[in-house]
């Protein structure tokens, strides 16, 4: 079984982002970039399925400028077999990404697509669900456990009330939650080997997909900051303050 995984290049989760003064967006120049953490989990899961002999090939896709090739090399070092860059300089919104992936699925015919539940830059949490819809495939979102038995996939999902378990018919789309696995680090030999692995480049036009954005960002602003608080000396003092505020039951 072939597995397709996705890897978005995002600002590293440790970076404190800065909104540009002209409100046109977030400062990305000279900022540390990384693979979206949920996508790292997706890659790890696919690689483990390969190590278990369930998957035969893991293909990783990233979309964007040539900078995403670095992201793809990281994914290859983590164990993906080959990479595809969907090359564009244009802004990509989730519906366009889902359509591009849908076109790639038609070419590559994977039985399983594993994606992150959310990109930590746009925080949309949409693309996997949209891809599943476009393909008319079942979806297992926010997955914390996957069990594959033949043509049936059992998925445990993290939901607001606890956990839900569903069964899906393959082919299917999965999106990962934080506790699905603990991604490995790429070893030095694997980083070297990744340089030799195939990386193909394709454009949205070649895939026949219109990537025109559906929304325009009018401005990006900083949220209101809270005023600096005070440090208190004891539990009694805190309880008295909260009582004065009227927030205690």
């Amino acid at each position: 079984m072939k597995i397709l995984v996705t890897a978005k290049r995002v600002i590293d989760y440790n970076v404190k982002i800065r909104v540009k003064a002209d409100q046109s967006g977030v400062e990305t120049a000279n900022v540390k970039m990384a693979i979206n953490p949920f996508d790292e989990i997706a890659i790890e899961e696919a690689v483990r399925l390969k190590e278990k002999g369930i998957a035969t090939e893991v293909i990783v896709v990233s979309m964007g400028t040539d900078a995403v090739q670095e992201t793809l090399r990281t994914a290859l070092a983590l164990g993906a077999d080959r990479a595809i860059q969907v090359q564009t300089e244009q802004e990509l919104q989730p519906l366009a990404v889902a359509k591009l992936l849908s076109a790639l699925v038609a070419q590559e015919m994977p039985r399983l697509v594993i994606m992150g539940k959310q990109a930590i830059d746009d925080d949309c949490n949409q693309t996997g669900q949209m891809l599943a819809g476009l393909l008319q495939w079942p979806q297992g979102t926010f997955a914390s456990q996957l069990v594959i038995e033949g043509e049936r996939l059992q998925v445990t999902r993290e939901i607001d009330g606890g956990l839900a378990t569903i069964a899906l018919k393959l082919p299917a789309v999965i999106t990962t939650d934080l506790r699905l696995n603990q991604p490995r680090y790429a070893s030095l030999p694997n980083i070297m080997k990744a340089k030799q692995k195939p990386l193909a480049i394709i454009t949205p036009a070649q895939l026949g997909v219109d990537i025109a954005p559906a929304w325009a960002t009018l401005k990006v602003t900083s949220p209101l900051t809270r005023k600096i608080g005070v440090k208190l000396n004891s539990a009694e003092e805190l309880v008295a303050k909260l009582n004065d505020l009227g927030v205690l039951p």
Partner: peptide
């Protein structure tokens, strides 16, 4: 159709505010 996640504010019939980057920035989108 393109959906919009996590709307915080409705400014006009087609203009919305939503958080990005863990709420460290707010995007106003049309």
């Amino acid at each position: 159709m393109a959906p919009i996640t996590d709307v915080l504010e409705i400014i006009a019939k087609d203009i919305f505010v939503r958080p990005i980057y863990a709420g460290n920035a707010l995007a106003t989108i049309q």
